[in-house]
């Protein structure tokens, strides 16, 4: 068993529950012991940094201070969310690069009886741990049900491969780590050119048309490559591409139906876990069809809402959008 300090981040408890469930389902198989940082707080996402500098960094650093106090032999913090990972890494990096910032942040932390020495923890993303610590050979050896016949678009988003302060990734724009992991699971992996493009971040809440265009590009790309599913390593990317897929379709008169899954969900499937244990069914764009390709039954969620069937054939005349059939036959 290898011990790691674990910073789940807010979305793992709510919008990315499937990520949390699937991760917890595979930790034992991978002999990964994740010790949750006690009483951790939000990292501030991309919002606090744009308001106040010292408070934003103090907010992030409280987690680092708590983690260090709890370290017990392990000095590696693992974050599964890209934004959390980057914020934690960023605070550590900049407090070293600009000691005045570190001093001020520590003065603030003092008000809570805490202290963090910059550089004393290693901050890493979950994918990095799985690839570089656990290793592809080990992962491959645990596969009992290879994902044969499933076409997967590997999607990393921005904040894992960039800015990459510690130079851990093979490339900033076309890293191959996730591809290799998915190949080890037996999946058919497409060479996805948009793998590190932006999902829109917080833009659905700020400038929807900007966000929808970024979401459209990714869905269009995955569709062009005939991917059955798009796999992400980030709760924010999953949320934008999954939950806003319908609104994006309405905006552009398209009809994309690409399930967006977490890479840990596919790992669980390949390790022979039941889809239900892995948070399947929580996605808004149903992954049932994709699962059926690898011989698994789709999960009907208890609350799948269906419209009552219209009995009369002549109903309200509805316009038939040409894009529905022409763009995505």
């Amino acid at each position: 068993m290898t011990n790691y300090l674990f910073y789940p981040g807010c979305s793992m408890e709510t919008s990315a529950k499937a990520y949390y469930e699937s991760l917890m389902a595979i930790t034992e198989i991978l002999e990964l012991n994740l010790i949750e940082i006690e009483d951790w707080n939000c990292c501030g996402a991309t919002e606090y940094l744009g308001i106040n500098l010292i408070p934003a960094y103090a907010l992030i650093s409280r987690n680092l201070a708590l983690a260090k106090n709890q370290s017990n032999g392990s000095n590696t913090v693992v974050a599964p969310c890209s934004a959390c990972y980057l914020n934690l890494a960023k605070a550590d990096h900049y407090m070293l690069e600009r000691p005045e910032l570190g001093e001020k942040v520590n003065l603030a932390l003092q008000a809570g009886g805490l202290f963090y020495k910059p550089g004393s923890l290693e901050i890493r993303h979950l994918l990095d741990i799985l690839i570089n610590d656990i290793g592809l050979e080990t992962i491959k050896s645990k596969v009992t049900k290879p994902l044969k016949g499933l076409r997967v678009a590997p999607y990393l988003g921005c904040m894992v491969p960039r800015p990459d302060y510690k130079k851990r990734w093979s490339d900033h724009e076309h890293p191959v780590e996730l591809d290799r992991l998915l190949i080890a699971l037996g999946a058919e992996v497409i060479d996805f050119p948009l793998k590190t493009h932006c999902c829109g971040g917080h833009m659905p809440q700020i400038s929807p048309s900007t966000a929808f265009e970024l979401i459209r590009r990714l869905l269009h790309g995955a569709d062009q490559y005939k991917a059955d599913v798009l796999v992400t390593v980030c709760p924010m990317c999953q949320m934008n591409l999954d939950a806003f897929q319908a609104e994006t379709n309405r905006h552009f008169h398209t009809n994309y139906k690409i399930p967006i899954l977490f890479f840990t969900q596919l790992m669980g499937l390949a390790f022979g876990k039941e889809p239900k244990q892995l948070g399947f069914g929580r996605e808004l764009v149903n992954a049932g069809l994709a699962l059926s390709r690898i011989g698994l039954e789709a999960i009907e969620t208890e609350a799948s809402i269906t419209q009552p069937k219209r009995t009369k054939k002549t109903g309200l005349p509805m316009p038939n959008m040409p894009a529905d059939t022409e763009v995505n036959p």
Partner: peptide, 29 residues
Amino acid sequence: TKQRMDITPNRIERIDELKRILQHAKELE
């Protein structure tokens, strides 16, 4: 319905500690 959004907030235990830190950080700023 897919339990991906809670209608009540999650709180951390030592919220007072966090508030003191942020208050002091704002003064420093």
